[in-house]
Amino acid sequence: MRELRPLTPDRVGDLVGSCAPCTFWQTVPRNGHSDPSEPLVLLAEWVESVTADWGPPGRIAYVDGQPAGHVVVAPARHVARLAAFPTSPSDPSTLMLVTAVTTPEYAGRGLRKALVQSAAKDALRHRVRSLEAVAARPLAVSRHACVLDVGFLEKVGFRVERDHPAYPRLRIDLRTVVTLRDEAAAAIARALDRVPGVRPVPESHPSGSSHAHVSDRD
């Protein structure tokens, strides 16, 4: 069985990655030290806060009950780490793609791209006109694994909105990508169909630091 479920406080333990849960984007170091809170506790509180203000901040993909990947999105006002980047948006309501990651066995199967498409579909439900992301170029020094790579974002339709030699901000205009409304669920299905033994089930509808490894593959 496969399905997409909203990211909720009780599901933060299902976020994937070599060092998940990731709280990189949700926190800013204090005097060189990370927030002392337990990552799961801090992330659950963050998810609850974003949900109350905007809605579930992402989706988790499951295959036979096991997490296979996730995507996280949130308005810029909830993404504290943006303040550390020179290309952070000036509008706190800007919807940001925070991360998109899959487990190693799904790398290269198109699931990460499909998760980004599902985030765009959710954004359209909120009548959001665009989705943005601060990403890293290959020249970025000491690039954190949670910062998406420019190459991946450009492959899925993002374009540079504000350039920078290391950390540009990219944007996708959702008004020009109307096919996302119909294709996101199908893309997830196609990606998971490539896994032997996986049977399709309907996509679930949404109700209503530690580090994470991010593969550079689609």
Rank of each mutant, 00 (worst) to 15 (best):
M1V: 06
R5M: 11
P6H: 11
L7D: 07
V16T: 15
P21D: 06
W25Q: 05
P29G: 08
R30S: 10
N31Y: 13
N31C: 08
S37K: 05
E38Y: 04
L40T: 14
L43K: 13
E48V: 02
S49T: 13
V50E: 10
D53H: 13
W54A: 14
I60P: 10
I60S: 06
A61M: 05
Y62P: 07
G65S: 00
P67E: 04
P67Q: 03
V71W: 07
A74Q: 11
A74P: 13
R77A: 15
R77N: 08
H78G: 04
V79Y: 02
R81S: 13
T87F: 05
T87R: 09
S90D: 14
D91I: 07
S93D: 14
T94A: 12
T94N: 10
T94Y: 05
M96L: 15
L97R: 12
L97T: 09
A100H: 02
G108W: 06
G108R: 08
A114E: 08
L115F: 11
Q117M: 14
A119G: 07
A120G: 13
A123K: 12
R127F: 07
S130C: 09
L131T: 04
L131F: 09
L131P: 09
A135K: 00
A136E: 08
A140Q: 08
S142H: 12
A145F: 03
C146K: 00
L148S: 11
D149E: 08
V150L: 10
V150I: 11
G151C: 01
E154H: 12
E154A: 10
K155T: 12
V156Y: 12
G157S: 06
F158I: 01
R159Y: 02
E161F: 14
D163T: 08
H164Y: 02
H164G: 03
H164Q: 02
P165H: 09
P168W: 01
P168C: 00
R169Q: 13
R171S: 14
I172D: 05
R175A: 08
R175T: 12
T176R: 15
L180H: 05
R181H: 06
D182M: 11
A184G: 08
A189M: 02
A189H: 09
A191S: 10
A191T: 01
L192W: 01
R194L: 14
P200N: 04
P206W: 13
S207E: 15
G208I: 14
S210P: 03
H211V: 08
A212M: 11
S215G: 12
